[in-house]
């Protein structure tokens, strides 16, 4: 395998949940490549399936409800979608790490921060207690937690929201993964720490050639750090391109709407913001055809609403769900 091959290739991934009301598809046939050593961004409105995509790749879907129903996830020559769970555990932590959106769901409330970091280290390497401590302190400093020695003895509830998030980032990075999946890694952080963490991730990327999937709803962050971007909507990727191309020439009406709803620093205070009307449909209401149809504000024939537009490469490395009405 050459070194320019993508580190991750996702093809036609379908993920569903079994609920009381029946089986519901949350991720509905998506495809993308994560270029090696690069940062691949995923944006999209709340509930569009970004986290479920991340949990599918790491095989951390809630059990027994969550299931990968189809498609493949190729990572370094192996299909993660069908890997036995014990092997997957080895991949996680050694090769692939994840930063979770809600720190409290990922941290153990009854164990100290130090203990949790130590466990993450010892799961994958053997080293002395002194080494474990030194590495833990070093990592806590890297994620800019002040007074790291003191903090190692504390429990998650004693930390501020942003500190919890940084502890989790430390846990994800401590084993120097090849692929980091960061689900809203900086949502709970103020802009200054956010900038520092993004820089830390970029440094590690340089240092060890780490590839990153960055999930965020912050188009500012996407614009500043990503190389390529996928825009998700209602369980599907509706557009995907290099970051410069996407911001300069968004082709899908949904991408255009997203870019327009960013509150600007020069807008009039306390005035209504531009917003895409309506909401992402819940997974129970996903239709087989185009799911943006009703919100797009454009006239539609039933045929348009009932057929899923094909995902095509409209120009070099610029993919879009190509509907004749929406795509300009």
């Amino acid at each position: 395998m050459s070194n320019t091959a993508p580190i991750l290739e996702v093809r036609d991934l379908v993920t569903a949940f079994d609920t009381d009301a029946g089986r519901m598809t949350a991720v509905d046939g998506i495809r993308f490549d994560v270029p090696r050593g690069k940062t691949f961004g995923i944006v999209g409105e709340s509930g569009c399936g970004k986290s479920v995509t991340a949990f599918s790749i790491t095989r951390l879907l809630p059990q027994p409800h969550g299931k990968i129903l189809g498609g493949s996830i190729h990572f370094e020559g192996r299909d993660l979608a069908s890997l036995p769970i014990e092997e997957m555990q080895r991949v996680r932590g050694n090769d692939i790490s994840m930063i979770f959106q809600e720190p409290m769901t990922a941290l153990n409330p009854v164990q100290t921060v130090g203990r949790q970091l130590a466990e993450a280290i010892l799961l994958h390497t053997e080293c002395s207690t002194a080494d474990v401590l030194a590495r833990s302190i070093d990592m806590m400093q890297k994620v800019r937690i002040p007074a790291p020695v003191q903090r190692l003895n504390e429990y998650p509830h004693q930390l501020s929201g942003g500190m919890r998030q940084r502890v989790m980032i430390a846990m994800a990075l401590i084993n120097k993964p090849k692929l980091l999946i960061a689900d809203e890694p900086t949502t709970a952080l103020d802009v200054t720490v956010q900038a520092q963490i993004l820089e830390l991730i970029a440094d590690l990327q340089q240092e060890m050639g780490m590839s990153v999937i960055l999930i965020t709803h912050d188009l500012g962050v996407i614009a500043q750090v990503c190389d390529e971007v996928a825009v998700m909507y209602a369980g599907r990727i509706i557009e995907r391109a290099g970051v410069f191309e996407l911001f300069a020439q968004p082709r899908h009406a949904y991408t255009q709407g997203l870019l327009e709803s960013i509150p600007r620093i020069d807008s009039m205070p306390k005035t209504q913001l531009k917003a895409i009307p309506g909401n992402v449909p819940g997974i129970a209401d996903f239709k087989p055809g185009c799911r943006f149809g009703e919100r797009s504000g454009r006239a539609h024939s039933a045929e348009h609403l009932n057929t899923r537009p094909p995902f095509v490469e409209i120009s070099a490395n610029h993919w879009v769900e190509n509907c004749p009405i929406c795509v300009a």
Binding site: P146, V193, A195, F247, I265
Partner: peptide, 23 residues
Amino acid sequence: DAIPIADPTQRRERQLLRGDVPS
């Protein structure tokens, strides 16, 4: 100064805050 601007052509070398975050 640290606000991320939603425009990839305006990437900047930010003046990151240095020094240890005080406790």
